[in-house]
């Protein structure tokens, strides 16, 4: 269910990630997800690729449902999914949990991060999170016309080298670059293009804790799930992530890693992490009650 982090929220009518993953994965129809910040042109791109007329107004939050359509490219059909705009995959709002659950659990065959070239830094924050989730990812550097007009030039080749994933510059409203984008998507899907995402390296103690958590999370998830990213979210005290990994309690997580997590969450004597969830078990709370 899409709205599961929001205490009895009524948002549940749309299909769940699992439904979508199943329905979309028609044989020979790879699933391509469009992720990105709000107003980066995802819906415009979606319309341009699928010919479907989805309304695109210029305000954040207008796409609250997953829109699906079929794009044909060089004789092959792709199911394109337009995700709601999000700033991150930490799932702190309805839109974010929809997008995040889809990427982490429905596991699209290819993910395209649509980034706004006029505001790259903010968009890279999300792109870096998405490349934590999957290898089969490309960045669509959209709105390059606006960027040029505003007087900033963005070097797609260098960006590609920095991220370790393909970057394609586009102008979605004029259809520029879409052919190359779909070529890249096709290559990623068939395996003729491989990526070597340069993942963010966190602080050493955080990495140590992650190394402890990841095997625990992996055990609870179907093969192929985004274990590292779910481990990051779990470490950050994200209740949604814990629910996703099969109602694992925070306590279980802390005890299972032999102190690595406790060290991080109580780190520097700065007190308990404020967002640790209450454990499901009868033991009161996990994480940092002791300090």
């Amino acid at each position: 269910m899409v709205g599961h982090h929001h205490g009895g929220s009524p948002v549940s009518d749309g299909p769940t990630w699992a439904d979508l993953g199943r329905a979309a994965r028609a044989p020979g129809h790879p699933v391509v997800a469009l992720a990105g910040n709000p107003n980066t042109g995802k819906s415009t791109l979606f319309n341009a690729l699928t010919g479907l007329r989805q309304h695109t107004g210029n305000w954040p939050g207008k796409t609250v449902l997953l829109a699906q359509g079929v794009a044909r490219h060089r004789g092959k059909s792709y199911t394109i999914v337009d995700l709601p705009g999000t700033y991150s995959l930490f799932a702190s709002s309805v839109e974010e949990s929809v997008a995040s659950d889809f990427l982490c659990l429905a596991r699209p065959d290819v993910t395209v991060v649509v980034a706004d070239a006029t505001c790259l830094e903010r968009n890279l924050n999300l792109a870096l999170q998405v490349i934590e989730v999957t290898d089969k990812v490309a960045v669509c550097l959209n709105l390059v016309d606006e960027a040029r007009r505003k007087g900033c030039e963005c070097d797609a080749t260098m960006l590609e080298a920095e991220l370790g994933v393909p970057v394609v510059a586009t102008v979605a409203t004029k259809g520029r670059g879409l052919g190359r984008l779909m070529d890249t998507v096709a290559g990623l899907n068939s395996g003729t293009i491989t990526t070597r995402p340069k993942r963010v390296v966190y602080d050493p103690d955080v990495e140590e804790a992650l190394a402890g958590i990841e095997p625990l999370v992996t055990r609870k998830l179907p093969p192929g799930a985004a274990t590292r990213w779910l481990a990051v979210r779990a470490l950050c005290g994200d209740m949604g992530a814990l629910e996703l990994v099969g109602d694992m309690s925070a306590l279980e997580l802390v005890d299972g890693t032999g102190g690595a997590v406790r060290k991080v969450t109580e780190g520097f004597g700065l007190g308990p992490a404020p967002s640790w969830p209450a454990a499901r078990s009868t033991t009161s709370t996990a994480g940092g009650k002791s300090s």
């Binding site: 963005c154 070097d155 005290g237 992490a273 967002s275």
Partner: peptide
């Protein structure tokens, strides 16, 4: 107090900043 989440996000943004600084002219 600084939480793990703060530090994770800070790492992500630091990286985003450094990439953006390199690729934008």
């Amino acid at each position: 107090p600084v939480t793990v989440a703060d530090r994770v996000v800070a790492s992500l943004y630091r990286r985003a900043e450094s990439i953006a600084a390199k690729v934008i002219a």
